[in-house]
Design a binder for these strands. Sequence first.
DNA 1: TATGAATGAGTCTTCATTCAT
DNA 2: GATGAATGAAGACTCATTCAT
Lengths: 240, 240, 240, 240
Amino acid sequence: MARQTKKTNPNQTDLDSSWLEGPNALGLVTSRVEDAELVSARRSQFVQSAIKVFCRKGYHSATVKEIAQEAGVSPGLIYQYVNDKEEVLFLSIQLIVYTLKNGLPQAFHSTSNPLRRFYACFEAYCRVVDLHRDSSLLTYRETSSLSKPHRDFIKDMELETNEIIAIAVRECIQAEYFEKVNVELFVYHTIITAQAWALKYWRLAKITDLDEYIAVNARFLMSSVLTEKGREEFEKVLAG
Amino acid sequence: MARQTKKTNPNQTDLDSSWLEGPNALGLVTSRVEDAELVSARRSQFVQSAIKVFCRKGYHSATVKEIAQEAGVSPGLIYQYVNDKEEVLFLSIQLIVYTLKNGLPQAFHSTSNPLRRFYACFEAYCRVVDLHRDSSLLTYRETSSLSKPHRDFIKDMELETNEIIAIAVRECIQAEYFEKVNVELFVYHTIITAQAWALKYWRLAKITDLDEYIAVNARFLMSSVLTEKGREEFEKVLAG
Amino acid sequence: MARQTKKTNPNQTDLDSSWLEGPNALGLVTSRVEDAELVSARRSQFVQSAIKVFCRKGYHSATVKEIAQEAGVSPGLIYQYVNDKEEVLFLSIQLIVYTLKNGLPQAFHSTSNPLRRFYACFEAYCRVVDLHRDSSLLTYRETSSLSKPHRDFIKDMELETNEIIAIAVRECIQAEYFEKVNVELFVYHTIITAQAWALKYWRLAKITDLDEYIAVNARFLMSSVLTEKGREEFEKVLAG
Amino acid sequence: MARQTKKTNPNQTDLDSSWLEGPNALGLVTSRVEDAELVSARRSQFVQSAIKVFCRKGYHSATVKEIAQEAGVSPGLIYQYVNDKEEVLFLSIQLIVYTLKNGLPQAFHSTSNPLRRFYACFEAYCRVVDLHRDSSLLTYRETSSLSKPHRDFIKDMELETNEIIAIAVRECIQAEYFEKVNVELFVYHTIITAQAWALKYWRLAKITDLDEYIAVNARFLMSSVLTEKGREEFEKVLAG
DNA sequence: TATGAATGAGTCTTCATTCAT
DNA sequence: GATGAATGAAGACTCATTCAT
């Protein structure tokens, strides 16, 4: 549970879009171009640029031309890999949500102690949110601009993400570290706390930093559900 | 701390726009019409309609014509009371944020027991959020579409709202019911929990209802900061 | 032929709209109001204001509301005395052209010497143009915005104005002061010279003043048509 | 000084917009399209059409759609080459003023005799004005619709045009053909006389034709400033 | 007669999308 | 595959004009 001393990101980091390069999980977005590798590479390129532009100006105010410019290609090219602007948003949000989700398994497996696991997951989630703060906000703001199928797809991804934390919580309950709480509610409580770092960054950044935010809120979260046994274990964890 | 048995709102309730009818706190929005009463009435009318349309389609996709139609007037009329579409959004968000804020003082003064006060504030906040769920989402999604001055104005209103809860928290600390936590961080933790009801309603509604959500999360929140003394008091409160 | 030492107008003078108060020469503009006196008074009032606004912003950019404001009445009232905005322009240009014309007879009758008459007319014309410089420009710019009947009416008024100077020129020819020139062409030459003071004021004002402009151009004009006899007479006139 | 027997233009001639094709003298108008040649070609095309429409209906009454239609393109295309409608007007007036100016140097250099030069310039000016009569009127009517920087640019072009004639006049004075008149005033007198052919065409066309107009007014102009020596030379010129 | 709120047609302008090269 | 010029539908906003009071 060593704290990264690295400060919160100054300039937002590019997302790892290898996700899009693999066999894309969904047939929801079709392309005019055959070469699968090229499709992945181009989409990855466009989505990186799109996210930057969307974060800067919002989905509706961003123009396809701007996205193309940011990517260093012509507007027409984008339409070879995507059917319309909305699909660019979909791929963008998909990448962001995937990135958030992707940060968790590593944290999850970094330890076998359930309590540490939960803590590690929360911390990882917070750090990913911080690393891609603007992107995280984007999903909040613009998911509603998606078509129903796309929106549902994103929601499903989010649920999958939640499930990872849910497992850690259930382990804690099983180990009698946590009270028998409503798992999903508690998971939401946890997740929304992490996401609040992005949602309320404009204010939170003025009164704390990421490390303290994680520490304080982890304590808030866990204190609310720890059993007596869990509380003891927690002290050990903090000490370790 | 009697629970309202009224179920969560089915269809969203109109906001009380009397706020706009009083001497409007800000000179940020000017009108072409002199008659102050008419201005208030019309703006209130337009904002009600605008919120409905904005919630349905989002700010950018909503057209002024649609807002006018919803209000039963001609598009031109709106521009007699507002300088541009963005001001309609501003007034809309202002009304929503004001409504959220406005629900708190009554809850705050409903009791003098600090612990009850905090609980009452949290409950009131959750209920207002629920009552105006779509509107609450709107502020999350579209505040970034505001101009800087308008955005700042909204943020200030939000801080004022937080302050009410902050007072309750400080009282709890003073009465030694709460640990000496970072007040503002805890307030954000509280508020984001309440707002999560709107943010994650699509899922939360499937696993719980508002009353349970309030009860469970109030317990989460308070458990995380209650002192031994506070814990005893809390039991009494729950029993009462 | 003493020169007025009064400098060119600083701020443009209101036109004498008594013209509109008399029995209006034309049935071209009808009114919803019965009382003829009121019609004259109101129209005069509106036209004064309209000319100011038109000069400031041009006909198309001026709004009826602005004209009403300038006149201190409501926009609706204007439509009680006029059928549309174009008629306001018509009445305005009519007043201006009338004013130009109206300045001439007095100058014409100020002397019986043909040469002096011509000079006096030219000088008067220049001074009226100067006094209502903006208005003069207005007729050049906006006459084309008039309907055909109104435009024709204005052109006829202009011809009537020319005729006054034409009479002076013919007298000069008859008295053998002027060569037997094409009268109407020479009149146009004269008039356009006077109007150039308004048309090119932006530059002319930098290189001369009205008095010099009149003197120099009167000499230009007359030199070009004076007979030997006329030349002698002209010297006397200048001396006198 | 042979007179062109070609009658006054019946239907207005297109302007030679090669001016716009060269390296445009001013960075005042930017374009979204890179290809400089295309920009020139399109702008030339649009300006030709715009002038036609502006002459027909005036700047304010002309719609961008109409201009596009006249040019056979979509309205959107115009905005790839121009930032707004006002810039179309600016380019239009610029072309017209340039055309007027452009006609002079050739006339100027057609002879070395100062008197002939002046005459040739005046004649050329009149003929260009006649050839583009509607366009000439346009500059009178709509220059005031330009933004200040654009208006100033046009005025400067006009001054440059005047300067060509001014040189001829100074030569005449130096050769003692002309009296020592105020050069700029006399140039204005000359130019306004030429432009009057457009300004008052509605009437002048009924009482004379272009050739006579030129001859008569050239005589008016020159007679007013010729010295004795100049008068003799002038007779020779007319005879030649 | 006077007011000014209300109307709605009409304009400029933007931008997602297409398609000839 | 890539380009970017061209399209044209759509939206914010204005303002001449009307009409209830």
